[in-house]
């Protein structure tokens, strides 16, 4: 899906590079959490994967298409949709369904096809009831699902999420994440930038960025078994608990970090 080789990018010629030689392969259908401190290059990487930026060095291939070639830009953006942090920055139209239609309209699709895609995207994001509502009247979580619907209406194979849950409350976050889970089950590739370790734990693979490079790459259990301690991440207390129980031998290796799993394994 994504094949990134030695990619580097600098916003200014003199400054420190935002990306400094990134190598990353992501397969179709994977859910990858991209974590790292502010300024570690996560957003830049997402923009390169969407052909919004072209790497100054190295290459990025998206579904076999070279992202640096302007001729591929349109095809890449149709196949890889991007959802940003602040939903207010992504909603173009005042009415929910009109906003979802924005992407397909840009593709010049016929009205029936646009309507089919809008219906589908609204269904997937659980917004059918709000289709005729003003986008300004939605809650934060609903607005972000609207931004997601706008991305899904392009019918992409991959989603890039740039801290898309960071402005949501727990209710909004849960509804957004359950949408993502469902999409991933249907085969959507997801690359999710996040600060929240609880969210990273949902992914199938965690990639840590540090100073513009990939510093760690592997499955969540390995990460939470101590890998994360090297970076100053907020550690979810349940992960610390899981770790402590494991090291004391109170629960067997391979126990999942969920509360119920751990309780069961403890056999109190």
């Amino acid at each position: 899906m994504f094949s990134i080789r030695a990619a580097a990018y600098s916003y200014s010629e003199s400054g420190t590079p935002a990306l400094d030689g990134v190598d990353l392969e992501i397969e179709q259908g994977e859910w990858v959490a991209l974590v790292g401190a502010n300024g570690s290059g996560k957003s830049t990487l997402a923009k390169i994967c969407n052909a919004l930026l072209a790497p100054t060095q190295g290459t990025c291939f998206v579904m076999g298409l070279d992202a640096s070639d302007p001729q591929n830009t349109s095809a890449i953006r149709q196949n890889v949709a991007l959802v940003f942090q602040n939903p207010e920055d992504q909603i173009v139209a005042s009415i929910v369904e009109e906003d979802v239609a924005f992407g397909p309209e840009n593709l010049g699709l016929p009205p029936d096809e646009i309507r089919r895609r809008v219906d589908r995207a609204l269904l997937l994001t659980d917004l059918e009831l709000y289709r005729a509502r003003g986008s300004y009247s939605l809650s934060g979580g609903q607005k972000q699902r609207l931004a997601l619907a706008g991305a899904l209406a392009l019918e992409p194979d991959a989603l890039l999420l740039d801290e898309s849950t960071s402005m949501l409350d727990p209710e909004g976050r849960d509804s957004f994440l359950s949408c993502l889970g469902e999409l991933n089950r249907r085969g959507m590739t997801i690359l999710q930038i996040t600060h929240r370790m609880e969210e990273a734990a949902l992914a199938g693979r965690i990639v840590v960025m540090e100073s513009g490079r990939v510093a760690w790459d592997g499955p969540p259990p390995d990460f939470f078994d101590g890998g994360y301690l090297r970076w100053s991440f907020e550690e979810p207390p349940e992960m610390a608990l899981h770790h402590a129980l494991l090291t004391r031998g109170l629960i067997p290796q391979g126990t999942k970090p969920g509360v119920e799993d751990m309780l069961e394994a403890l056999c109190l």
Partner: peptide, 24 residues
């Protein structure tokens, strides 16, 4: 806002001046 919106529109395949179709 304008800058972020411009990037978001671009990523949603908006090309200034290009022909767009309409849902309605």
């Amino acid at each position: 806002r304008a800058e972020n919106l411009a990037v978001a529109m671009e990523s949603r395949c908006y090309v200034p001046g290009a022909r767009r179709s309409r849902m309605n």
